[in-house]
Simulated scan of single mutants.
Amino acid sequence: MENEEVVTSAFNIAAFSNRAIIDFISIIILVGLIYYPKHKNKDFIFNFVLFNVVNFMICSLLGAVKIKIGFAFGLFAMFSIIRYRTIAISIKDMGYFFGCVALGMINSLASVDDGYYLLIACNAVILILTFCLERLDFLKNENSKDIVYDNVELIKPDNKLLLLEDLKIRTGLNIHNVEVISIDYLKDVALIKAYYFSKESLNLIPTSKDSDD
């Protein structure tokens, strides 16, 4: 009986070690080789790796209880409501965050009856898909930004080309279209929405509200 318990314990340790190695290699590839070369943000690397490791440990330690599916979805839902209030996190960074959390869950709770082949394949699919989507440089986003503009003479339809040229010079963005939202003739300013193409969905121009904060 004691020998069986020793064998079972050794098997559990070996299984945990194998899962930990797969998870560690996957998170290093995702964060170190896919995310960082493109975004150069060391602060998010800390968060991504930490959430992945902590999530992997929690799922591994508590996954033995017969509530694996409900536990996994509950933990994922808990992480989904987390918001970073000190900084603005982009949609793509949030996607990486969920990828790191999902890898921790998959590698800790997935069945390995086939000898880890399916687990390794799932990790490979996630990493390859992330790599391919990250390198879709030919796709551009049409972003928009509200701008308080101080030259109301240029907002006339006849001066649209001059307005676009002035906005390009001031903002450094390749603005291709504008929309007048409101005009304040007392302050001689207008609120306009500028449209431009970018590879990333980022707020590059601070608004008047951001400046006040």
Rank of each mutant, 00 (worst) to 15 (best):
N174H: 11
E179F: 14
H176G: 07
V178G: 00
V152E: 01
Y195A: 08
L163G: 01
D188F: 05
D184W: 14
V148P: 00
R170L: 09
D158G: 03
N159Q: 14
Y196R: 02
I147N: 00
L167V: 03
D188W: 01
K187V: 05
K199Q: 14
L163C: 03
V189W: 02
V180K: 01
Y149P: 02
K193T: 10
K160F: 12
L154K: 05
N174W: 03
S198F: 06
I192P: 04
K160Y: 12
A190Y: 03
D166N: 15
L162W: 10
N174Y: 08
V152P: 04
L191V: 14
Y149V: 04
V189I: 15
E153D: 13
K193G: 00
N151V: 01
F197Y: 09
I175C: 02
D184A: 08
K156Q: 15
L161V: 14
L164S: 07
H176A: 06
K145W: 00
V180G: 04
F197T: 07
S198T: 09
S198I: 11
I169P: 02
G172K: 03
I183Y: 05
A190V: 07
F197K: 12
N177A: 15
I155D: 05
I181D: 06
Y185F: 15
D166G: 14
E165K: 15
G172S: 03
K168M: 13
S182E: 13
